[in-house]
Design a protein around this nucleic acid. Structure first.
Lengths: 344, 344
DNA sequence: TAAGTCAACGAAAACGTTTACGTGACGGCA
DNA sequence: TGCCGTCACGTAAACGTTTTCGTTGACTTA
């Protein structure tokens, strides 16, 4: 019996487990609504074992699931956790988002994903929208300074800053690596190979992550008695990372022989720079020693020339839920690690 | 005045725009709750211009935003749209997710992102969870057959299948490219270059996308009088795409001279295969002509050797909202396009 | 002027939960 | 026996909306 009629299919209600409310369960189990609620929420000591069993049987039989809307309305808090990413085109951000998703699921929470495209207005819009959804917490994955951000902070909204620290209040909860330390390690990695002649390609300095990394790099080289001259720090305003790298390499080529080492503040920048040098027909032995940040999972496959500071993105999800649950540690610093892919 | 006390910060309620309900707006504008609701929802003809203006002023002043929970509860439908992806580690899936996110935002909808990890149980869990959230629609990004999936279909839940068609009911709404046609185009791309000696590396055949692609490839080569022998279709059960490609190339190497053309059902497979051939020290002129599917945005940067069938992932978001809104077209087929990166 | 139409708005119910409070039964203790 | 405490459970209010229905007043029309 096919339905060729124009009626929307939703109205069919075939399985009948659509729209089973707590009331139906209560009726079926011959108890009150309140009792069902108590059983569902595990207030176990509030019900006789037999009653609980009867309720659970009714729940299973009817295929009941508590309505998210009813819950959120009552307890003024949903099971949603918002992640506002600065740029989902960046594989590192999606990697973190994926990791957060897994961790949230194991806690019975749900991920609402937003892309602010690094624009303050969009970030503000999302902050408000997510609060209207009564999200349990808002994770800012690369936050940018914006009016509503400071308002939310002042209002005591539960915010969580990942990768980039909060641009307005350094005391806000943060999850990430020690970027200054990572910068130092990167520098020492090259120094240990006897490489002092380096350039650094990086993105815009509004990001605390970038800022800390190049600070660490500068310090380590200076401490080794081989300070990097300011003109060796290369960036391009308003460009995406691939493009930044490409132009940085272009600049290096036009300035003469490329340096012996090239530190890129992200793997994407390294991809761009490497591409330019290959296009220029640079001989393999003239190719600088590359060092990136992130360690994209694709690196072993498509960029075996790229050593990189591996950031444990898979661990970010757990850190996020730990912070949400405890509310406790205001700061979780995860361990980075240099992956050496240089020709020994 | 610092707060060194142990009180949770949420209780501060500094800006006072926290918890402004429609009631507060009504009181402030000296109208009834109903009128505010009408103005908010644009039932404009139901209110005097002056009243509407007064209400809007109150809304702006108090910073009111309708509570998502209240709304969902009342109209039995939230502004959430679920995307259940088979595998967020796959850049193609995250690209689609990002595209969907942008399109949803412009419609005032919010993306709830899930990763089923290609497991039927997890997919089922998410299907139920998302229905409990009263999602407006559920987008299955690479669906797998599962018990609850057929139950939801029978119940008439609004489902949307992207990339892979529904494994149980071919009539379910679908968004994607014409994969059979794309397979044919891929074959003809190589044939036009005089390449008949090819191998095909692909993932598991539960996916209608993969199935259609290799069917198209087979047909086109057969029609050209150069059928591809069955042993030239290579896969590895249960492995991820990169690994599948690597092992396929490994197999080809052990079977003698690699073919002149290598079609990979995804760019990731191509990355893996290419890596193996490079490791084997294959001379550049002996390298097969590669053809992948997806056309990863990174290709021009890290895989300039890879021609690919470009799938318009940026267009998927619009297609999704069109389908959600209209409920109309049951099928949107988007146009693919071959990107030729072969040495002229 | 009386009746009828219609726009503008308010009152109230309903959506599905959680939870404070009340109630009856039962057992221990003086 | 009378009193109190505890346990298991029910009653009902509240959360913030949307929407149906009813009411009011102004305006048109006969």
């Amino acid at each position: 019996m096919k339905d060729k009629t124009g009626v929307p299919r939703r109205s069919r209600q075939a399985t009948a487990d659509r729209g089973v409310s707590i009331r139906a369960v209560a009726a079926h189990a011959q108890v009150s609504i309140a009792t069902v609620s108590r059983v569902v929420n595990g207030l176990a000591n509030m019900a006789t074992p037999e009653t609980a069993a009867r309720v659970r049987a009714a729940i299973a039989e009817l295929g009941y699931r508590p309505s998210s809307a009813g819950r959120s309305l009552r307890q003024r808090e949903s099971r949603l956790v918002a992640v506002i990413a600065a740029n989902l085109a960046n594989p590192a951000m999606t990697a973190i988002a994926a990791s957060v998703e897994v961790a949230l699921r194991s806690r019975g929470l749900v991920l609402a994903l937003c892309d602010s495209h690094d624009q303050p207005e969009l970030q503000d819009e999302y902050l408000l929208e997510m609060r209207a959804h009564l999200v349990r917490a808002t994770v800012l994955l690369g936050a940018v300074a914006s009016p509503k951000l400071v308002a939310m902070i002042e209002a005591g909204e539960p915010l969580l800053f990942v990768n980039r620290r909060c641009p307005c209040d350094d005391d806000q909860p943060f999850i990430g690596i020690d970027n200054r330390r990572a910068g130092q390690d990167a520098a020492e990695f090259l120094l240990a190979k006897g490489i002092c002649d380096v350039a650094v390609a990086h993105g815009h300095l509004a990001s605390s992550a970038t800022l800390d990394r190049i600070a660490g790099i500068g310090e380590a080289f200076a401490a080794a008695g081989a300070p990097v001259p300011p003109e060796r720090f290369l960036t391009t305003q308003g460009a995406e990372h691939l493009e930044i790298g490409y132009r940085a390499a272009d600049h290096l080529l036009s300035a003469g022989k490329p340096p012996a080492g090239l530190i890129c503040a992200s793997d994407m920048i390294a991809f761009g720079a490497h591409r330019r040098l290959v296009e220029a027909g640079l001989a393999p032995q003239a190719m600088p020693q590359f060092l990136g940040f992130d360690d994209n999972p694709l690196n072993p496959w498509v960029a075996p020339w790229l050593s990189s500071v591996r950031i444990p993105y898979q661990a970010y999800g757990d850190a996020v839920v730990r912070m949400i649950d405890a509310g406790g540690p205001r700061r979780i610093i995860l361990e980075h690690q240099i992956v050496d892919r240089s020709p020994h």
